[in-house]
């Protein structure tokens, strides 16, 4: 081997440990799951003893009304929370983007929910939603209203509210950062051009924040598809299947129904969904970069 060849290989040698760890920690379980999803596999068997069934797990799931229900709950949940969080988070950021005394304290308070462990959030809200001793119903009753069956009749809405409470701050801080990095003088120019506060938001601030908002929304969407703990603690997916999101159904299929193959197939469906979203996100960033690069080239050509 010549020293030149050796030189070329050096970087790969340094990368090897990381690559090996990645392969073991990431690719192995993934491959295991994909392999398992094609088998009729019971937890008491080793994977080698299980029977190969081809796409049976996927096909069964595709026609399984319970899985479809669970998928639709997940989609409803994810899109509802992300939409609401975007509206509230961006709204709050627009409202609090000013220099008033005490604003930094207020901002810190706003992002507290995000720092609480999801299980704790679930427990907290479960207590607050309790039909008789819960905070909400006690308030309602003290004001002379009927109590609401939060985690029964309105279970999905209730978990959506809890998630909004926890994750709006995420959108809020990112929007606030985006807002504060907007060109100040362009906003001043808009004021001189005659834009009202609303027109400044609509025509200048929101369009300029859009790239950040799109990426933030996609991140939240991906996260919302995988939410588990809060709902597990609050409703365990019930009543019925009304709050049984896919992540919860996967864990039940594996533990209660003891169908590891089906659970793996379900995970793969979820994975495909997330993959599509992630690719969409990359595509958007790449598009933006490509556009910026094209503009830079255009300027250069003109000298």
């Amino acid at each position: 081997m010549t020293s030149q060849r050796l030189n070329k290989l050096t970087p790969y040698m340094f990368m090897a440990p990381a690559a090996i760890i990645m392969a073991v920690a990431l690719l192995y379980p993934l491959g295991y799951m994909i392999y398992g999803s094609f088998r009729d596999w019971n937890p008491s068997q080793t994977i080698g003893e299980s029977e190969f069934v081809g796409f049976k797990n996927y096909i069964t799931l595709f026609y399984d009304p319970a899985f479809r229900e669970s998928l639709s709950v997940t989609l409803t949940f994810a899109f509802a929370v992300v939409t609401a969080e975007l509206v509230i988070g961006v709204g709050l950021a627009l409202l609090l983007d000013r220099n008033i005394r005490g604003m930094s304290v207020l901002r810190t308070l706003f992002i507290l929910p995000m720092m609480i462990a999801p299980v704790v959030v679930g427990l907290m809200w479960r207590y607050m939603y309790h039909p008789t001793v819960g905070t909400f119903n006690r308030w309602l009753k003290s004001w002379g209203f009927e109590g609401v069956d939060w985690l029964g009749q309105h279970a999905l809405l209730s978990v959506i509210i809890a998630d909004i409470w926890q994750w709006t701050p995420f959108i809020f801080i990112l929007s606030l950062a985006a807002l504060q990095s907007l060109p100040r003088s362009a906003l001043e120019a808009a004021r001189i051009d005659g834009a009202t506060a609303w027109q400044q938001i609509w025509y200048i601030k929101l369009p300029l924040m859009m790239p950040v908002l799109i990426v933030t929304a996609l991140l939240r969407l991906i996260d919302a598809f995988k939410v588990l703990e809060v709902i597990l603690v609050m409703t365990e997916g019930g009543p019925g299947l009304s709050t049984e999101i896919v992540a919860l159904r996967i864990s039940r299929t594996a533990t209660e129904f003891r169908e590891l193959g089906t659970a793996a197939a379900m995970s793969n469906y979820l994975l495909i969904l997330l993959l599509v979203l992630t690719l969409a996100m990359f595509a958007i960033t790449r598009l933006q970069e490509a556009r910026a690069a094209r503009l830079a080239r255009q300027i250069q050509e003109e000298g």
Partner: peptide, 16 residues
């Protein structure tokens, strides 16, 4: 600013 009837050119141009 909008009610003062003026136009301004900024140092950094402040284009949208």
């Amino acid at each position: 600013p909008k009610d003062r009837g003026l136009a301004m050119v900024f140092q950094d141009y402040a284009l949208y």
